[in-house]
Amino acid sequence: MPRPRENRRQPVTVITGGSRGIGAATALRLARAGHRVGIGYERAAEAAERTAEAVRAAGAEAVAVRLDTSDEAQVDTVFDTVRERLGPVTGLVANAGISGPLGRFTETPTEVMRRVVDVNVTGTLLCARRALREMSTAYGGQGGAVVSISSCAATLGSPGEYVHYAATKAAVDAMTVGLAKEFGPEGVRVNSVQPGSVLTDMHAAMGDPDRAWKKAEVTPARRPGEPEEIADAVAWLLSPEASFTSGAVLRVSGGL
């Protein structure tokens, strides 16, 4: 039996946390694959615009929109803006995430835990829900794909660093499996990517700029990942080549 053809119209993909790091690398990678790109960013407006300009230089259309993923109204604004400026949304890369400072679980402030859960869990759920309303055939959409950025922390637990963050990423993976089963019959594939330690400025935000290289010592590849290596995995999961892949949690970690 021949495999079903996915919709071949020009894809339009929303990327949350798209101003820097994995999000920015994914925006550029998708631009090279012919996607129009909506870039959500929380505070780094200049970085988001630089990413948008790089996307345009690669020959694709782009729009950058401020977004706190935990705010439902802002999520709606992003999707409304992307649809009006770029066309019907066909994909979501739920990349926005925070960890808070590194430290023992017993010393992690409640407000840090709550904010990490708000962004990483509630924010991912809100973005996925809006994307599914755009893409599901049950809502008049033409199908599409969701890729969430998880973390190896979801299975390793990250003791002594950020157990609360690890817990939120495990929730993202559970969401991936459930949504893949619920929305597969409605034309939407849902997957997640679990990066290992990657060279981004997230480590500095945690309080340890050299953390990626320290983690390399226990990574079989003996090096950190590059954002572009995660972006390649995301691009594949969004592509027609992954048309039979849904509910997958793809580990991209150098063997960690």
Rank of each mutant, 00 (worst) to 15 (best):
K169T: 06
R189Q: 09
V172N: 09
A174M: 00
Y165P: 10
P185N: 07
L156W: 06
A171V: 13
V172S: 06
H164M: 05
L179F: 15
N191T: 15
P159N: 04
R189L: 06
A167R: 05
Y162R: 11
E182H: 10
N191Y: 09
V188C: 12
P159M: 00
T168G: 09
A167G: 07
K181A: 14
V147F: 09
E182V: 08
S148L: 12
A171D: 15
K181D: 15
A170W: 04
A154R: 05
T176G: 14
L156R: 09
G160H: 00
S158K: 04
M175E: 02
T176E: 15
L179A: 13
T168L: 11
G187D: 14
A171W: 14
V172G: 08
S151D: 04
N191D: 12
G184L: 08
G187Q: 14
A154W: 08
V190C: 00
A167Q: 07
C152D: 04
M175D: 02
D173I: 01
A167E: 04
P159L: 00
E182W: 07
S151E: 05
G160V: 01
E182P: 11
S158I: 03
A166K: 03
T176Q: 09
K181H: 05
G184S: 15
I149C: 08
G157C: 12
A174K: 00
M175V: 01
S151M: 04
E182I: 11
R189H: 12
I149M: 13
Y162K: 15
G184M: 12
H164N: 04
Y162L: 13
M175Y: 03
I149E: 13
G160N: 02
A171Q: 08
R189K: 10
I149H: 06
T168H: 14
S150M: 02
R189I: 15
T176I: 15
A166I: 02
A153M: 01
V177C: 13
D173F: 01
E161N: 14
F183I: 11
S151P: 04
V177H: 07
V190F: 02
E186Q: 15
A170P: 05
V172C: 05
A171Y: 13
R189P: 09
E182Y: 10
N191P: 15
K169E: 04
G184N: 15
E161P: 12
G157Y: 08
P159T: 00
R189V: 11
G184C: 11
T168K: 10
N191F: 14
G187L: 15
D173S: 02
S151L: 03
M175R: 01
M175W: 03
A153W: 01
H164D: 06
G178H: 07
P159K: 00
A153T: 03
G184A: 11
S148P: 08
E182L: 06
A174S: 00
K181G: 10
